Computed example of a mutant assay.
Amino acid sequence: MDTNSDSVQFVTLPRIEISFGTAPFGLFLSKCLKAHIPLVRDAVHELTCSNPVQLAGFVVDMFCTHMIDVADEFGVPSYLFFPPSAAFLGFLLHLRFLHDYEGLDINEFKDSDAELEVSSFANSVPGKAFSSLMIDKESGGAEMLHHHTRRFRHVKGILVNTVIELESHAIQSLSESTVPVVYPVGPILNTRKGSDRGQQDASAIMSWLDDQPPSSVVFQCFGSMGSFGADQIKEIAHALEHSGHRFLWSLRQPPPKGKVITSDYENIEQVLLEGFLHRTARIRKVIGWAPQIAVLAYSAIGGFVSHCGWNSLLKSIWYGVPVAT
């Protein structure tokens, strides 16, 4: 997005101090967003009073469904922006239906071999593949998702970050359901190579990639919430070393209790196999945070080992990099 465009105006809301306390992450997120309702209401009121342009509607994020109530107060329609895939939209709607009308407890799928038939997926969905946020009662994730998914039906349309050629089955299944009309508006990507994280880290990575042959490096990255235990890290390191291929590995440590975002290791050698960095020095670069867009755009990258987060998949498709899931 061009932030200098005359057609786009950004409004920064006043800061609110909210105590996390012992509230599960999912419930805290809902509490935080709900607390912003008066601020959004005031900001929209001020804009409509000082601007001759008529208010046409609200576009709200999938976790900001509290703002549908504000749109109703102003007498304008709401549209939902759904950043994940159309298939996942259908999955959430199906789970909400089973929970509300058939008494399904999603937690029953934890460590289960059971599979769920969902119309937006061509194949059944294994319970073991459900997000941990959904089947961890302590996180409050399932309750939060159910709450917001119920509100999806109160909007006039749903804008999904996808393209019909990529998800024709899912989009067709949604068009045959009773949900509001779905608009594929993707892929919406921020392809700017710059980063807020610090240009020094990115420069070192790019400098290493500059020295690698075209399509020779496997990029391994598992998202801002992706981390592994010590035994898994050692197994991955063993496999990478014995593959003999060049690799760029974004390795992050698990988040502290109560948090969801991973962080960099202070000493990465402590979690790797003894001598691994020395033995693989000619073919590897092990990093913490990764400038994913810039890396995938590089000609040296020949493959991407990914957790298959939707943004990661869209970026990889955009730059034509094969994915190993």
Rank of each mutant, 00 (worst) to 15 (best):
Q220D: 00
K285E: 03
P256C: 02
H242W: 07
K285C: 03
G229E: 11
P213D: 05
S216N: 05
V218T: 11
Q220W: 05
E269L: 01
H278E: 15
Q232P: 02
W208M: 08
Y265A: 09
H245V: 03
R284E: 13
V286Q: 07
T191S: 10
R279S: 12
L240N: 10
D196W: 01
S263P: 00
K257E: 14
T191E: 11
G229P: 08
L277V: 14
Q199E: 14
P255A: 06
G258M: 04
K193C: 03
S195H: 07
V271M: 08
M206D: 03
Q232G: 00
G275Q: 09
I205L: 10
S215I: 00
R252W: 05
I233S: 07
Q200D: 15
R252M: 13
P214E: 12
M206K: 09
S215L: 02
S263N: 12
L277T: 14
L272T: 04
V218E: 00
T280M: 10
S227Q: 01
S215D: 04
D196A: 12
R282G: 05
D210L: 06
P256L: 04
E241N: 10
L240Y: 07
S250Q: 03
I205S: 04
S203Y: 07
Q253H: 02
K285W: 01
D264T: 14
I283W: 00
D211C: 06
D196T: 12
L248M: 10
P256D: 09
Q199Y: 02
E241P: 06
S243R: 08
L251S: 04
A281Q: 15
A230V: 11
I205M: 12
I236T: 02
S203R: 11
L251E: 02
F219H: 14
H238S: 09
D196M: 07
K259H: 15
H245Q: 15
F222G: 09
F228I: 03
E241A: 13
P214N: 07
